[in-house]
């Protein structure tokens, strides 16, 4: 924040920053290399900077749109909505936070699940919407994920999940925590049936989502430079009281420490995942 912004009354400041958060306009500045990019070109490039390869965050629906074949597609469990089982209220009511998130994202919840095809291979794909309360996992996210698993079990297909989440949703407390057990148990069924689960971790994949469904891929993939881990870096820094090593909890760090199978550029995900599933299920190259 500049000295001028600091001087401004907080009201004005909020308005200004919320305006900035809305991505509009013709030009965009890359947070990686500071290059000024043509917005439309960036979009065509799946939000990856054509100059330095920096991966910007991408919404759930655009993610699935770029991943799945155009036809056929069927969204699953779209009608599910959060209730507020604890009547939770912090500085704001949980109910109001949900409504605000719905308005902001156009999504009813933080996970979108679709049945579809990738290069002709039937599968189910799920993607987290990070802009929806930090992609946090509550009852609806857990249930939608399980419905996705069930659809995959039903049609005997693979499941692919793109994670982008801060972790479990605090406002549903233990209900949220139990979604970790619920989603992991469902993935156990996929294993019993010998159906592939491909987990793609994008920036960020933390806490309860990382420590349940995301780390349970038959193949664990990450996008470059994504923050992935259990505890947040700030919490760790406060606990161990030392500076964290360079690149700590980034994709490359996790690959080096054996948590991932590979790091893939977003623009290669569709082709590579299609072929991964094809090899695992004894199909010719799609």
């Amino acid at each position: 924040m500049s000295w001028f912004e600091k001087l401004m009354p907080s009201r004005i400041r909020t308005e200004a920053s919320s305006k900035r958060a809305v991505p509009e306009g013709i030009w965009a500045k890359c947070p990686g290399c500071s290059a000024i990019l043509y917005r439309a070109e960036l979009e065509r490039n799946l939000e990856v900077c054509p100059k330095c390869g920096h991966h910007n965050r991408i919404g759930a629906r655009r993610r699935l749109d770029g991943f799945l074949d155009p036809e056929p597609r069927e969204e699953l469990a779209a009608e599910l909505e959060s209730v507020d089982p604890l009547k939770f209220k912090d500085l704001k009511k949980y109910k109001d936070r949900i409504v605000a998130a719905q308005k902001q994202t156009g999504e009813k919840e933080a996970l979108v699940v679709m049945r579809g095809r990738v290069k002709g291979i039937d599968l189910v794909a799920a993607a987290f919407e990070f802009e929806f309360l930090g992609g946090s996992m509550g009852s609806v996210v857990g249930e939608r994920f399980v419905r996705g698993v069930n659809a995959a079990l039903e049609q005997g297909s693979a499941l692919v999940c793109f994670a982008a989440s801060g972790g479990a949703r605090m406002q549903e407390s233990l209900f949220s925590l139990m979604q970790m057990a619920k989603t992991s148990a469902a993935l156990g069924r996929m294993r019993q049936r010998g159906l592939p689960f491909v987990s793609v971790m994008t920036d960020p994949t933390m806490g309860g989502v990382s420590a349940s469904l995301s780390m349970l891929g038959d193949v664990n993939i990450a996008e470059p430079n994504a923050l992935i881990g259990f505890a947040g870096p700030r919490v760790i820094e406060q606990t161990v009281r030392e500076k964290l090593p360079e690149g700590f909890q980034r994709s490359e760090f996790l690959l080096e420490h054996g948590a991932l199978d590979m790091i893939l550029d977003r623009r290669d995900l569709r082709d590579r995942i299609a072929d991964l599933i094809a090899i695992l299920t004894h199909r010719p190259r799609p």
Binding site: M180, S210, A211, L216, A231, I236, T239, A259
Partner: peptide, 26 residues
Amino acid sequence: GAYPGVGAEERGQSEAIARNLLVMAH
């Protein structure tokens, strides 16, 4: 809670927890 430390993350705290959830369920 699970220990929030550098070594714990390096050795896969998330994976260790996730795997227990899956295995215990079955």
